Computed example of a mutant assay.
Amino acid sequence: MTDVLVIQSAREVKPGGGVSGVAFELGENLKSSNVEIGSFTIDDIYPNSFKNSSNLFLKKIAQLFDIIVYGVWGSLKLKRLYKSNNQAVVLCHNDGLYGDIYINHGLHRAMLFASDHPYRMLLRNPLHLYLLVREWVRFKLNIHKHIVCFSANDASIMEKTYPNTLGRITIIPNGVHINKFMPNSMVRKEKRLELGYLESDFVLIFVGHEFDRKGLKFLVNSLLNLPENVKLLVVGGGSAEKIEEYKNYCKDNGLTHRVSFLGTRKDIPDLLNASDCFVMPSAFEAWPLVGLEAMACAKPALITDTGGVSAFVKPGYNGYLIKRDADDIAEKIRSLMSDEASYIQICKQARETAESYSWQNIADKYLSLIKQCLVEKNNA
């Protein structure tokens, strides 16, 4: 395809996790299809001097301001720039309210009401109310001609919540960087030595912020029903107060020596290689990419059956679907540990599963949708 401009609309587009990482990988892999790739980020609206601040309060205020400004002012500017360009296709990720194709990274309404205390969350953080209103406006006003959901389950939730989206949904899963996330025995040995783990230790890894929603406490409690050589790496986290709360919880339960809190890290592929199993008992996920990244490193994934998880986690084949229950998590981990030959096979099959979700394969699916969108725009 030539003379086609694809604009990725996201507050940030950069390597890493989350929405910004998805936008980055998709853009990089679309380039190989002779498509010109551009982006429209918060930096195209105004420079935010506080977003990289070490002051947590200033960072939170900056994030709140960015979300609202990008959603309102940014959407108007984006529409003015590209509405009349029939050779441009805008891919909208989350925060904008303009775009030919909307990539649904999760319905906020579904996430909120899947949590244990939705109304408490609304009262404590008014941003949730803004996000609910923004979501209602997006789908009730039919802002986007096409909507991408990561799984059939995601699409079903979308259609039940917003029936007028029926007929506009295309299912395209998120991809995984299989050359960045891959098994590496040398890295495993070096990283385990650095972290102080023995080869006989069975190391679980949890990656993510929002410890409560992602069910970290259930995972911590599962250790009480598992042998002493089962250890837990916790990567990520929110405020220092939340991390301290969980550290104290581990101390109260005699688990301090078995749980390591590493905070935010950039060496996620290395840490996944150092582990033996990825676990995330989350209340809600649209498409937990980190689970596929763990599988790309040949690690079994134990994740709750939410969002699109069942599309790639096949119980007993490459991991297990788990409940938000310490006993259930412990049972699945014991199952992995009980048969070494079976565990090795599951690891191999986890990698094979991840390879089928390579970003190039996913970019090809987006390219087909972009072509369809161009035809529709030029025939209108």
Rank of each mutant, 00 (worst) to 15 (best):
Ile67His: 08
Tyr130Asn: 03
Phe40Arg: 12
Phe40Trp: 15
Ser32Asn: 12
Val89Met: 08
Thr41Met: 06
Asn48Phe: 09
Asp95Lys: 03
Leu122Cys: 13
Val133Met: 14
Arg124Ala: 05
Asn94Val: 10
Leu58Trp: 02
Ala88Ser: 13
Gly71Pro: 08
Pro118His: 02
Met121Leu: 13
Asn52Thr: 09
Met121Lys: 09
Tyr130Gly: 05
Val90Thr: 06
His105Thr: 11
Lys77Gly: 03
His108Asn: 09
Asn86Gly: 03
Arg120Trp: 09
Ser33Cys: 07
Gly106His: 04
Ser54His: 03
Leu64Gln: 11
Phe65Gly: 10
Ser39Asp: 06
Met121Asn: 02
Ser54Met: 02
Leu132Trp: 14
Phe65Asp: 15
Asp43Leu: 01
His93Trp: 05
Met111Pro: 00
Arg120Lys: 10
Gly99His: 08
Arg120Gln: 14
Arg80Ala: 14
Asn86Phe: 13
Asn125Met: 10
Lys51Arg: 12
Tyr98Ile: 04
Asp66Ser: 10
Asn125Asp: 15
Asn125Val: 12
Met121Gly: 01
Asp95Gln: 07
Gly71Gln: 03
Trp73Gln: 11
His108Gly: 11
Val69Glu: 00
Lys31Asp: 00
Lys83Ser: 15
Ser84Glu: 15
Ser84Pro: 13
Ser53Thr: 01
Ser53Phe: 05
Leu76Arg: 14
His93Ile: 07
Ile45Lys: 01
Leu56Tyr: 03
Ala62Tyr: 06
Ile42Arg: 11
Asn125Gln: 14
Gly106Arg: 05
Phe65Thr: 14
Asp116Ile: 15
Val89Pro: 09
Ala114Pro: 02
Lys79Ile: 01
Val35Ala: 09
Ala62Val: 00
Ser53Cys: 06
Asp43Val: 01
Tyr82Lys: 07
Lys79Cys: 00
Asp116Glu: 13
Leu91Ser: 07
Phe50Ala: 08
Ala110Gln: 12
Gly71Phe: 01
Pro126Ala: 07
Ser33Arg: 04
Asp43Trp: 02
Arg109Pro: 01
Asn86Trp: 04
Asp116Gln: 10
Gly71His: 11
Leu78Glu: 02
Leu127Tyr: 07
Asn104Met: 14
Leu81Trp: 02
Asp100Ile: 06
Asp100Leu: 00
Pro47Ile: 03
Ser39Tyr: 11
Val90Lys: 02
Asn94Phe: 05
Ile68Met: 03
Ala62Phe: 03
Lys77Asn: 00
Met111Lys: 12
Lys31Pro: 08
Tyr98Glu: 08
Lys60Asn: 07
Ser32Lys: 15
Tyr98Met: 07
Val72Asp: 07
Asp100His: 01
Lys60Gln: 08
Val69Phe: 06
Arg80Met: 04
Ser84Tyr: 12
Gly106Ile: 05
Lys31Ala: 04
Ser49Glu: 11
Trp73Asn: 02
Phe40Ile: 15
Val89Tyr: 02
Tyr46Glu: 10
Arg109Lys: 12
Ala88Tyr: 07
Ile68Phe: 03
Leu127Phe: 12
